[in-house]
Nucleic acid binder design. Structure first.
Lengths: 161, 161
DNA sequence: TATTGTTATACTCTATAACTATA
DNA sequence: TATAGTTATAGAGTATAACAATA
């Protein structure tokens, strides 16, 4: 028995053709590769390699929800407590985020954009939108829209749209 | 100026609603989340937490290209040399892969499935296909097909299809 | 001198748990 | 006793470079 026969797509390398087996039939395989491509090209557009997609998303969510608590931020983005702490530390060191004690609960901190953070976010938004546009440059508007809907369906496990 | 107004989608948590800002307009955001969901549910179907998507893909590619060199395997899957070495080590320790010297080049090793490896791959293929099907259970066949095509376009940067 | 593959090392991320301060 | 957040620590994954064997 040869397992090499059920192929589906090939790749040319070293003057030879290789077979991906059943991998190309898997949505997860393509999702992984597209997401990796997104990550790997992200810093090219942003310039600053220390600004990762995750760190950008933290700034974005704080901008959209001024004063939310660190735990809330963590829950919204699916971060662990330490991950939230570290991401906020990163932006605080750059004077883009600030922590403020809440009068109603001395344990909690509300997270806010600083003035510099607002400017940084406005700039980042443009760059990230440009990067995302470049990532999907080969798609029609219709395909881009469909892709977004279908990905949401996957993420919400069938309860979406 | 408030940055919280350009919202697009919301999430309910802690008896409150939070805003994702521009994140939901980004394909990359959804790709990341869908891919993370894929990864996080993968071990549930496979059972063995040490068998990662990457390690499975190594077995798959060796099965589809018996005897390919380690460097070729690395290139096909976009792995670094050490990553290829370690992945092959993993399967060799489980008696699923073997390295064989090539008569025509003493430096290179060809990678082969063992008999046990063939059985393991056959089983894994079924489980992985089932997992991928579950991941996309909320999609119609048509949507699944479209998704695959569109993701390939992204990956190949516009030269695809 | 270049290439295949291995090993060593370091760096990033993540996950857990211990800790503090408040409640 | 429980919760918000911080710090400490360890584990997985990845990337680079040094290395051994062969060409």
């Amino acid at each position: 028995m040869t397992l090499a026969t059920q192929s589906d797509a090939k790749i040319a390398l070293f003057d030879r053709t290789f077979d991906y087996g059943q991998l190309p039939s898997l949505i997860g395989f393509h999702l992984r590769r597209a997401s990796l491509l997104d990550f790997s090209t992200f810093p090219e557009e942003i310039g600053d390699r220390s600004i990762t997609p995750l760190r950008y998303s933290v700034l974005e969510v704080v901008g959209a929800n001024p004063g939310l608590r660190q735990m809330q931020l963590a829950a919204v983005l699916g971060l662990s407590k330490p991950a939230a702490t570290l991401a906020i530390d990163f932006w605080e060191a750059r004077n883009c985020l600030s922590r403020r004690r809440l009068p109603e609960d001395g344990r909690a901190r509300g997270v806010h954009l600083t003035e510099e953070g607002e400017g940084t976010l406005i700039e980042l938004r443009k760059q990230v939108a440009r990067h995302d546009r470049a990532l999907t440059a080969s798609l029609s508007d219709d395909e881009r829209r469909t892709l977004q809907i279908v990905l949401r369906k996957i993420i919400e496990g069938g309860d979406a749209n």
